[in-house]
Amino acid sequence: MSVIEAVGLRKQFTVRVKSGRLRRTRRTVAAVDGVDLTVERGEMLGYIGPNGAGKSTTLKMLTGVLMPSGGSVRVCGYAPVPERTRLARRIGVVFGQRSQLWWDLPLQESFTLLRHIYRVPPADHAARLRECRSLLDLDEFLDTPVRQLSLGQRMRGELTAALLHGPEVLFLDEPTIGLDVVSKQAVRGFLAAQGSRGDTTLVLTTHDLADIERLARRLVVIDHGRVVHDGTLDSLHARYGSRRLVVVDLAEPVPDPAIELPGVTLAAASPDGLRLTYALDGSGVTAGELVARLATTAALRDLAVVEPSIEEVVTRLYAEG
C-alpha cells in the first residue's frame, strides 16, 4: 500500500477583493487544483514550485491541518482531517519557520515532553534520541533554553523532535531556510542518512536547489496548484531541454565561432574571442563530436563540460509558468 495517496486533491480559498470604496466582492482562488500524488514507502520526494504555487497548502492537507475542498487523500491509510490524532502518531512534521519546541525550556525538556505527548515507550525514545544526539551533535546545547539556540541548532532540535516517535513519513517544509552553510550541510547529511535506510518516507518542499539535488530522488513540480512534472531529476532535464555546456579556451580567436551542427548553439563568447561556450540540447551531436569538429578549425588550449544545473531548469520552468 502506498504511504500517500492523493487523487484530484483540491483546495479553494475565498478571498475578498476590494472593488470600489466600500464594496468587496468574493472571489474563489484554487490554491491546489487537482493534484494526483502517490508516494511509496521509503521514497524521497522533493515537492517544489514557485511561491504561492500551492506547496504549503498541499503539505497542510496531507498532515491534517487543512481540510481539502475536493478530491481524496489518505496518508498511512488515514484520512488526515477526520483521523488527525491517529495520523499524528505516524508522521513527523517540521515547518521551517514554526517551532515544535518549548521556547523557554532547555531543549532536552522538549524531547521529554514529546515522549509523553506521543506516548513513546521510554526505551524506543532513548534509542532514537541517542542516535539523533550523535548524528546531529546535540550534546553541547541539550541543556540550553530553546530561545537561546542559533537557528541551525534549533533546526537540529526540530528534526530530532519530529523523529522521536519513529514516524513513517517525515514532512519538511523548507527545512534549510535561513540556515548557515554548515548547518545546511548537517541537516542535509542527516536527512540523506534517514532516507537511505528506506523505512522512512521523506516529503520536502524547498527553494534550495542543493536540497533537491542531495535529497530528492523524485521531483514533483507544482505550479498554479497543478502538478507540471513528476519524475526523476534526469527526466526533468530531458523534458525541459536542459543544456550541457561545452566551454573551450582557444590559443587564438577564430573568425567565425558559430558552428553548423545539429543541436549546438553558441551560448557565449568572451570579448577577446578566446573563450567560447557552446550549448548542447541533447538532440543532436555529442560533446565529443563537437570537440572533434572544433579541433579541426582552431587550436584548443583547454576545455570543460558543464553538466546542466537544476537551477537553470527550475528557473526556466518558473519563468514559463
Partner: peptide, 13 residues
Amino acid sequence: IGLLDALLVRPLG
C-alpha cells in the same frame, strides 16, 4: 506564528 498548526499535527486535542 503558526502555533495552531503545530498543535494540529500532534496526537492530542
